[in-house]
Nucleic acid binder design. Structure first.
Lengths: 220, 220
DNA sequence: TGTGAATGTAAGCACCGATTACACGGATTG
DNA sequence: CAATCCGTGTAATCGGTGCTTACATTCACA
């Protein structure tokens, strides 16, 4: 089951002379990457500290020098995923100027697309189940900035007369629930007809986003 | 191959006393209830076969006479939860006649309320992660009937001229995504201001549902 | 250059899911 | 009534997991 593939030999190494440096170059980074890969392969449940250590070519106890617990590792993984998520959305939004409502649409589309193309990564940044509830952390911070971005865009759209009168806070929550729900349903297997990703899924995602936008837009 | 019945039997243990019945009355039922309780206490991850057996007052191996694996137990638990979910929604809908769009609103409200008041139960019926993907099972069947109910109600509303022209299939998916997303965000801790349940949460749920309905309703 | 701190190793604990061999006892049947 | 069979529970055990502790090695800085 476990294909050892003993001759990995592809490990990034700084030191050419030493065949096997006792100290790993950047074990923390490598562990996060291995865990990210595990998440991508089998979901969050598939991540085990031992397996991450195995892939990093290191003993089972080594990761605990960098992460006090499995949850801490998962949290670091989620922070990395959230960072990528936010970066991609902001990039999409920056590359798509235009009227505020159109920008809102781009925002939603980028959200949906990333979630559908990175389902397991979306899953771990979605659920707070994996983390200590005490720490709001970088995840909530990143998330808060995304929410703020959404609210700003909506406010601009309203100021431009593109929205019908409504409580913008509620519009923001409803929009968030819509895209979150669609992404999550997709991941959770509620649309058996298509896979988690694929043209039909993305077309439907676009359609329901447009339906929502038509619902909140001011009409002639 | 079965039973050598080798020696002269000679029962190693006499039946000195029978303080409690060897055979549990209905272990399967009791195990499902114990697991449901565990889900209610600490989420789906908190369910272990051993703990369920412990609470049923039975040895760690006993549950495997009724469920071939932990997943099978979880599936039975999810089926029970889904049964209750569907029953409550249908009851709420039956008790609330009126115009089709109003019935649609009742449907959504019952969905949201149940999800917010039984968050961990909603969680296990939401994610297909716990089950064999092969089996569509009673869960999908119940879910399909709920979807059908939604579609029927929407079609009635459209026939009554209460909806603006739109693809009803997309409206149904969007509506489902909205309530699913709100319920899931609530459970997943995206609304730190209020708890998973509570008056403010239910008020907000009602508000975004109304926002959505206004968006799809025909306007004068 | 020597030394302490950082980092990885090895061994082991408790818990878990799952399997297997066996013990019990109620229901069936002659 | 009595023998038996099989559904059901027990006990022991296996491999895997998170996590801790004691120890070994190497790096970085005085």
């Amino acid at each position: 089951m476990r294909s050892a593939a003993k001759s990995s030999a592809a490990k990034p190494r700084r030191r050419a002379t030493a065949p096997k440096p006792y100290h790993h170059g950047d074990l923390r980074r490598v562990l996060i990457d291995a865990a990210l890969q595990l998440v991508g392969e089998g979901g969050a449940e598939a991540v085990s500290v031992r397996e991450a250590a195995r892939r990093a070519g290191v003993s089972p106890g080594a990761p605990f020098r960098h992460f006090p617990s499995r949850d801490a590792l998962m949290q670091a993984v989620a922070e990395e995923a959230q960072r990528r998520f936010r970066a991609e959305i902001e990039a999409a939004l920056a590359a798509a100027p235009g009227d505020p409502l159109g920008r809102f649409r781009c925002l939603g589309l980028a959200y949906l697309r990333w979630a559908m193309r990175n389902p397991t990564h979306f899953e771990i940044i979605s659920s707070r189940r994996f983390f200590d509830h005490d720490r709001a952390d970088a995840i909530s911070r990143d998330n808060a900035e995304l929410i703020e971005l959404t609210e700003r865009t909506l406010a601009e759209a309203f100021a431009a007369g593109q929205l019908r009168p409504a409580d913008l806070k509620q519009v923001q929550i409803a929009g968030r629930a819509l895209v979150y729900g669609f992404a999550r349903m997709n991941i959770d297997g509620h649309f058996p007809r298509w896979g988690v990703a694929g043209p039909e899924a993305e077309r439907t995602a676009e359609a329901i986003l447009d339906l929502f936008i038509e619902g909140i837009a001011s009409r002639p």
